[in-house]
Amino acid sequence: MGIGSGIFLIVVGAILAFAIAPDTWDVVNLNMVGYIMIVAGIIALIMGMVYNRQRANTSHREVVERYDTRTPPPAGPAGPAV
């Protein structure tokens, strides 16, 4: 879960907790579901921020490969002796 999903859970939870009457649906208390979603959204928001902070603290190392351009002398008969 990221920051966006945490904000989404907080918004939907606030709508369920504060905008709907408590006795709208007899099977489930929507206000309690809203409070649970708000708490879950806050936890997701905090976790998303922690993960982004860890991702920003990475270090990068640059590796440069060097190849010698000198070639060894050609093998062959030796020159005239002096």
Rank of each mutant, 00 (worst) to 15 (best):
I15L: 12
L30T: 02
A78C: 04
T69L: 11
F8I: 11
T58S: 05
E65S: 04
I38T: 04
T24R: 03
Y35K: 00
P74G: 13
D68N: 12
V50W: 13
V63D: 05
G34L: 04
I3T: 09
V63W: 00
M49G: 15
A17Y: 05
V82Y: 13
F18D: 00
M1D: 08
D68S: 15
R55N: 09
V28L: 10
G76C: 05
A40W: 13
Y35C: 00
N52E: 10
H60Y: 14
R53H: 12
V39N: 11
I10Y: 01
G48A: 00
G41W: 01
V63L: 02
A56Y: 05
P77V: 00
G34D: 04
I10H: 02
V33Y: 08
M49H: 13
V64G: 00
D68L: 15
P22Q: 01
V11R: 12
I7T: 07
I20D: 00
D23L: 12
Y51H: 14
L16R: 06
V28H: 09
D26I: 11
A21Q: 14
A44L: 07
G41M: 00
G4S: 05
G4Q: 03
I20C: 07
V33E: 02
A78K: 01
V39T: 13
G2P: 01
Y51C: 15
N52V: 01
V11G: 11
M47Q: 13
D68Q: 12
V63A: 11
L9R: 06
D23A: 03
T58I: 04
A44W: 11
V33R: 12
N52G: 09
T58K: 00
R55E: 12
I15H: 09
A78S: 08
M32S: 14
L16T: 07
Q54V: 09
Y67K: 12
F8M: 14
A78W: 05
I3S: 08
A75E: 15
Q54N: 15
I42N: 10
T24V: 08
I42K: 03
A17T: 00
D68A: 14
I43T: 03
G34W: 01
A75R: 14
V82I: 13
P74E: 13
R61A: 01
I15N: 02
P74W: 07
T69H: 03
